[in-house]
Simulated scan of single mutants.
Amino acid sequence: MALPRPPAAVVFDMDGLLFDTEALYREAAMTVAASRGHDLPEALFLSLVGRPWTANRAALLDHFGAGFAIDAFQADWIRQFDTIVDGRLALKPGVLRLLDTLDALRLPRAIATSSHHSDVRRNLAAHGLAGRFDAVVAHGDYARGKPAPDPFLHAAARLGVAPEHCLALEDSHNGVRSAAAAGMAVVMVPDLLAPTAEMHGLCTLVAPDLEQVCDLLLAASAAPVGRTSGTLPPPARLGGTVQS
């Protein structure tokens, strides 16, 4: 298992990839649904992972019915998540080693997420990672959310690197679809969703965790020149910003 060439930049998803939050979102959603006398099937929740709220709102109304108090449900879901995430926000294995490796390789990196900027700031601050990313693309920064390519295209533009020279790291099916549609090489690191035949077709690789991604990047950076022809050199990083 190897990357076809070393990337010039790396774009991360956030929930389920950097932070172990998807299981907490599931716990919060099912708790709130039960408190309202509803059952939220596991399959339905999993179909919501990696999608913007507009799409998820429609899916929940389709399941629960047009009379379902969707806005109140969303508000309670967010409050319940905010309650349980405090003190339980864990990094996914390999995050710190991978960020240290990107520093050593001088590779710029961004986050492309469906979550809000406030969520990104909270999560990064909780683990002292606020200065470890060159750009953050979040809800409100793009017209179309995942699985459309917009979040990843915006991230590449913020980094000043062509999408085809970026490596995208994703855990969700819709995130993989988004990154692949943007023209990026994609490594899926599964969280709640197992890779399907479609995912294997869209991804360059499927890795068990970010430790493996770290090893892949180190191996690609050490590859002979003949194996990496056509790769753009990493943009220079000065003072935490990317100079293109």
Rank of each mutant, 00 (worst) to 15 (best):
R106L: 10
H127T: 00
A143K: 09
A43L: 02
M14I: 10
C214I: 00
L218I: 13
F45Q: 03
N174A: 12
D191L: 06
T54K: 13
H165R: 12
G87L: 04
P190H: 11
A8E: 02
P208T: 07
P235D: 02
S221Q: 09
D71I: 06
V186N: 10
A220Y: 09
M188I: 00
P149H: 04
C214A: 14
G183L: 11
C203W: 12
M188S: 07
Q74P: 00
A9S: 03
L60S: 05
G16Y: 06
Q212D: 12
L167C: 08
L107M: 09
A207W: 06
P147T: 13
A236F: 05
R26V: 03
E22V: 03
L217K: 06
M184V: 10
D171E: 09
D39F: 07
G131N: 03
R26G: 11
P233N: 07
R26E: 15
Q212R: 14
L46C: 05
A23K: 07
V187R: 03
L3C: 13
A55I: 09
R51A: 12
V186K: 12
D141I: 04
L105I: 07
F133W: 01
A126Q: 04
V176T: 11
L17D: 14
G131Q: 09
A179Y: 11
D62H: 12
D103C: 01
Q243L: 15
L159V: 10
L202G: 01
T204D: 02
A156R: 08
Y25Q: 07
Y25R: 06
H63Y: 15
R121S: 11
I78K: 15
A90I: 04
D13W: 07
I84A: 01
A220N: 02
P235E: 02
D141V: 10
T196H: 05
A185H: 15
S178K: 04
L40N: 05
L159S: 03
P7H: 08
R132S: 14
T113C: 03
V32Q: 07
V187C: 08
R144A: 14
V176K: 01
E170K: 06
A220V: 12
T21E: 00
M1N: 13
T241R: 12
D191P: 12
M199V: 15
P235L: 08
P190K: 06
H63V: 04
M14E: 11
V206H: 11
G65M: 02
P195Q: 12
P149L: 11
N123C: 15
V206R: 10
H127A: 01
A112I: 01
D86P: 00
P108D: 06
S244Q: 04
A28N: 08
T228H: 12
L91P: 05
S35I: 09
V186C: 13
A8H: 02
N123M: 15
L238T: 15
A185Y: 12
N174Y: 08
V120E: 11
R121P: 00
G50C: 05
A138W: 03
D141C: 06
K92R: 15
V95R: 05
F64S: 01
